[in-house]
Design a binder for these strands. Structure first.
Lengths: 323, 323
DNA sequence: CCGAGAAGATTAAACGATTAAGCAAATTCA
DNA sequence: TGAATTTGCTTAATCGTTTAATCTTCTCGG
């Protein structure tokens, strides 16, 4: 069906080995023959069999990507970045969902290995530890996680939010997180609290432990801003405030994290902090590839984030006419 | 490192072929030996080399999944379902993003084939046609698309929405879609307009062609409900209305499609139509696998959808205290 | 008691690439 | 000129399975 090395070899009266060498540029082949072979290969539309190559070399050209529950819209965006980075290097991406328990995560890891992944990029479930594996692994978590390979600078993100709110004169902030067990969220909260002005105060509320007060109570307690650790938390906050008839940002400001797809679309637009997913994907992949080439893994890295000021904190003149 | 057939064979004093047969249950091996071999394999932790098997059999146990821009939160959810269905069958999922042009989509398809996918599941870009391929393909699009394999019953979904709005006494509906070139959206709109009561009327507005009127103008034109062809469209509508101080659903109702992750979280909850992504994933995979076994592809199928009535159409008593 | 057929195993040839080793012929160097 | 080296290509082994073909040894019917 599709041409193989031998077809080219026969067509040109040379050996398979020479064809292989000519195409890979590895052995010793005269320049003239090399180009003739390459032309012929192109003419026949030759594409090497990944399967045969994988068997012989032990490299499949595929890396595995393990994500926690894909429900969080950030992960698809990350998957997209990883896929793009992999594609640019001619690699494929096998996905696995580590939904559920730590055991599910371990199984997902091993399944990807069985399926021939050369290396893994893992976004670990909260509070889990990865088993020792026989292939290179890159971990995308929080900078404070031991064994982390690369991550956004969540603390800096928190600091940016706090600074932004300070600039707009907010003095009393309600920080809303989901789960205390998430290092990412803890880092974000720490970034915020650490960058408050001397005249500012904040209270941290974990939704997992304690329900949110009613909008009225929030105002009554003197908070002028709600700072969520994720857009997915900020969105319900924003809509609840609006449904209760409060004016955002005039009466109360709202901020999130991650710049999810919907965050620019809501009205008013949600002020948030964007991670550089492209850089993170590149870094993770680079780490895996370095280890594959028996180079030492690069040191852990932290990627700067960007503040995206939008309508929920800034009273933009034409908020009303935004899409 | 990891044990291979030969290791087991040597350990038991039999040939590789016998071990292979015993494990696969294919050739003729005595029951006694068969179980002994299986025990030994389990003891050694034997896992067959996918690479070698792929080379020999031509099957890699991996299927390719091609999605349009993953920005739409529905696709990750679908990916999750496909991955789950594949995992249950011991298959892996290679992903590719067909972001951009039709050419990008074609390249993505071929790249997955090069990387050894046995078959493909494709959610095609709007208005594109797939090239002829040498492997089984399942297409997830709209029932009205030629060559479609399986899809949600988008017309039925539209009918459900229309009926729901009729039940709540709405007479004049503004249907809001993004792009007329999307078959899915056209089917949804057709479902809605086709199921209007005799005393009802609707206008269809495509955002790609025409901007949305201001909330005030919408009310002035007598509309009591906004029916979007997607939650991603409905969310901005909802928040714009709320930001303008309108009461949803008292002054105006809003509906969407797809039950995105955020749709249950906003306040009030967004009334929407959920696809049975699990069934769609199963159907798509089943079609690919049938074709792989040289069975004829099953006939195109349409999967029923479910209406999820929520706060944007129903004035739920405790809307205020929902998360 | 013999031939046919089945049962239970083995042998060896694939699958399609990579790559170490080998072998002429051409080139270099003294 | 002759030995040493380099160049250019071929041969053949290898990766770990699967599977068709074969080969013994039994079993059983007539």
């Amino acid at each position: 069906m599709t041409p193989k090395l031998e077809d080219i070899a026969r067509a040109m009266g040379v050996s398979k080995a020479t064809v292989s060498n000519a195409l890979s540029g590895k052995g010793r082949v005269s320049e003239a023959l090399k180009t003739r072979i390459r032309d012929e290969a192109a003419r026949l539309g030759y594409a090497p069999s990944v399967r045969a190559r994988a068997l012989r070399t032990g490299r499949s050209g595929v890396i595995g990507l393990v994500l926690p529950d894909i429900a969080n819209p950030l992960f698809p965006a990350l998957a997209q970045s990883i896929e793009a980075a992999a594609q640019a290097r001619g690699l494929g991406v096998l996905i696995a969902d580590s939904r559920g328990t730590r055991e599910a995560q371990d199984k997902a890891l091993r399944r990807l290995l069985r399926q021939g992944a050369d290396g893994l990029v893992v976004v670990p479930r909260r509070g889990t530890k990865l088993p020792e594996l026989t292939v290179p692994v890159a971990v995308i978590d929080a900078a404070s996680t031991p064994g982390n390979t690369i991550s956004a600078d969540h603390r800096q993100g928190g600091a940016l939010i706090a600074g932004h709110l300070r600039n707009f004169g907010h003095k009393n902030i309600l920080i809303v997180g989901q789960s205390r067990s998430s290092r990412v969220q803890r880092d974000r909260v720490a970034g915020m609290t650490g960058a408050l002005g001397n005249d500012m105060s904040a209270r941290v509320l974990w939704l997992e432990e304690e329900p949110l007060p009613s909008p009225r109570d929030i105002l009554a307690q003197g908070f002028t801003a709600l700072a969520a650790t994720s857009d997915l938390i900020a969105l319900p906050l924003l809509t609840r405030l609006q449904a209760a008839g409060l004016k955002v940002p005039q009466e109360i400001a709202v901020t999130g994290f991650d710049n999810h797809a919907f965050s620019a679309l809501v009205a008013p637009g949600l002020t948030t902090v964007a991670q550089d997913l492209g850089a993170i994907a590149e870094g993770a992949l680079a780490s895996v590839l370095a280890q594959l080439d028996a180079n030492p893994a690069p040191p852990p890295r932290t990627v700067p984030v960007t503040l995206l000021p939008r309508g929920t904190t800034i009273n933009h003149p034409n908020t009303e006419t935004c899409p």
